[in-house]
Simulated scan of single mutants.
Amino acid sequence: MKEKLAKTRAKGRFGWDDPDDCSIETLSQMLKDHVSKGDPVDVANLAMMIHQRGGSIT
């Protein structure tokens, strides 16, 4: 999970922890989209982000 997050950060993705940059609703939609792609690491990382922000899947 950490390796995948590091690779994504290197590509310029950031801000999941900033409500002004990324809402819980956005993270929730991203999680739903990644479930259909079949990568459990992406799903786990997105679920962790939502959890750490105190949110739930909308």
Rank of each mutant, 00 (worst) to 15 (best):
E3Y: 00
K2C: 11
A10K: 06
V35M: 10
M30V: 08
V41E: 14
V35D: 10
D17Y: 03
R13D: 01
K2D: 12
G38T: 13
Q29I: 04
L46R: 09
G12S: 06
D39V: 06
M49A: 15
K7Q: 08
K7N: 04
R13G: 05
A47D: 15
I24R: 03
A10L: 02
G55M: 15
K7P: 04
G12Q: 02
A6N: 08
G15W: 03
T8Y: 04
D20F: 04
Q29S: 02
S28K: 02
L5H: 09
G55F: 10
N45V: 13
K11E: 08
G54K: 13
L27P: 01
D17M: 01
R9Y: 01
M1K: 07
G15S: 05
S56V: 10
K37C: 11
S28G: 08
G12F: 05
K37H: 12
I50C: 09
F14I: 05
M1T: 03
I50A: 12
I50Q: 12
P40M: 11
I24A: 03
I57E: 14
G55T: 14
D18A: 02
L46C: 09
F14G: 05
R13E: 00
C22S: 02
L31F: 07
N45T: 07
M49L: 15
A47C: 15
A47I: 13
D20P: 00
S28P: 02
K37Q: 12
K2F: 07
H34G: 06
K37D: 10
E25L: 00
S36K: 15
M1L: 08
S56D: 14
M1D: 05
M48S: 15
S36F: 09
V41G: 11
L5G: 11
P19T: 07
R53M: 14
H34W: 00
K4Q: 06
D39M: 03
S56T: 14
G15L: 06
M30W: 08
T8A: 03
D33G: 06
G38I: 12
L46P: 09
L5S: 09
V35Q: 11
S56C: 08
D18P: 07
T26P: 00
